[in-house]
């Protein structure tokens, strides 16, 4: 009962990652049990960027870590290229292949690089593990090409992480992920720790690489304006559930779930005139996330909302109404 499967038109899209009824519970049965993910299903298509947004603690990182098999799911399945990753045996060829094809870029560029390793050895770690280099010279050549790819240069290879700025360190992390020629990259808040001008550089870099190498991204973030910019589709998470999933434009211009609307209304806009007219929309989870049975329903072509059966008609009507307006007003602004 995959939400995305019901759509009619884009059967030509190739599914790279399929998440089915994923459940992740920490400390199950104990007093401090945390239901970090409560039954989520979605696809990631080959070549796309899926943005994953939601407030702190909503389960974004846990989702990413479950997909890369850092956690054993409490329930449900993750399929990569049609293969159930839970069935990959440690040390098997298939497992090694999976470990190469799926890479993660971490939020904190300071903590994720070993301070005692030279940049070239950090970048080549995966090359060594997967025996991708034919010789030392080949290894060096690959490292240099990667440095060049991410906008650093050969001289940087023999330096240590502390000699670099935040933006440069994030580039080193990206080069390390690219070194093993992955197909799928999970970027967990890769730009949150950087300032605006450097954020733009790193986002441009990720886009360029994607265009060149036909990479697929899961891009996790809480900065919604950057997510909109980089993503093809966006999934909105709340309390361990998906509440809305649609194309980036749909989510931004026609948000339907009250949580998405609240989230959008809280994004600060660099425009004082707009800010003066805006009021964040408060969100009351008790109405749309109570104990009733809900699932992701396609209420408009390619636009899914977490809804109970009797809420579907209301969401459908709201979607149609929202699409009648050419330029819907920014969420949270009062039209006067």
């Amino acid at each position: 009962m995959m939400a995305d499967d019901k759509t009619s038109k884009k059967d030509d899209r190739e599914i790279l990652v399929k998440v089915e009824h994923l459940v992740q519970t920490f400390n199950k049965g104990k007093k401090d049990e945390v239901k970090a993910i409560q039954d989520i299903s979605f696809n990631i298509y080959k070549g796309e960027t899926l943005g994953l947004v939601g407030e702190s603690g909503s389960g974004k990182t846990t989702t990413g870590r479950s997909i890369i098999r850092l956690y054993q799911p409490t329930g449900g399945d993750v399929l990569f290229e049609g293969q159930n990753i839970a069935r990959l045996r440690n040390g098997s060829k298939a497992m090694l292949d999976f470990r190469r094809k799926v890479q993660m870029i971490f939020q904190d560029p300071y903590a994720s690089l070993n301070p005692r390793m030279k940049v070239k050895d950090i970048i080549a770690e995966g090359i060594d593990i997967h025996h991708l280099a034919k010789s030392n010279a080949d290894r060096d050549n690959r490292v240099n090409a990667l440095l060049d790819e991410v906008g650093l240069n050969k001289d940087h290879a023999t330096r240590y992480p502390h000699e670099f700025s935040g933006g440069q360190r994030q580039r080193i992390g990206i080069a390390r992920a690219l070194a093993v020629e992955p197909e799928f990259i999970i970027a967990d808040e890769p730009i949150s720790a950087l300032d605006v001008s450097i954020q733009a550089q790193v986002v441009n870099l990720l886009k360029d690489i994607q265009d060149k190498q036909n990479l697929t991204y899961l891009f996790i973030a809480h900065d919604l304006s950057m997510v909109k910019y980089i993503s093809d589709r966006i999934a909105v998470m709340h309390y361990g559930r998906l509440v809305e999933l649609a194309s980036a434009d749909e989510v931004y211009n026609h948000p339907l779930h009250p949580y998405t609307q609240s989230l959008l209304s809280a994004i600060p806009i660099p425009d004082p005139e707009i800010e003066r007219k805006r009021t964040p929309i408060p969100y009351d989870a008790s109405k749309v996330e109570d104990e009733r049975r809900r699932r992701m329903v396609e209420v408009y072509p390619d636009h899914f909302v977490f809804a109970a059966t009797d809420e579907v008609a209301g969401y459908k009507a709201a979607a149609v109404k929202s699409h009648l307006v050419d330029h819907p007003p920014l969420v949270g602004t009062t039209t006067d």
């Binding site: 605006v196 001008s197 441009n204 950057m226 910019y229 994004i267 806009i269 920014l330």
Partner: peptide, 28 residues
């Protein structure tokens, strides 16, 4: 925000993606 004069201030304002940003690349 509306009458900046220094090219660095311009750069900062340009590097912010607005929700309307539709171009292919962000200004860095």
């Amino acid at each position: 925000f509306y009458n900046a004069q220094h090219p660095y201030t311009w750069g900062l304002l340009e590097a912010m993606p607005t929700l309307e940003t539709n171009s292919d690349r962000l200004y860095a």
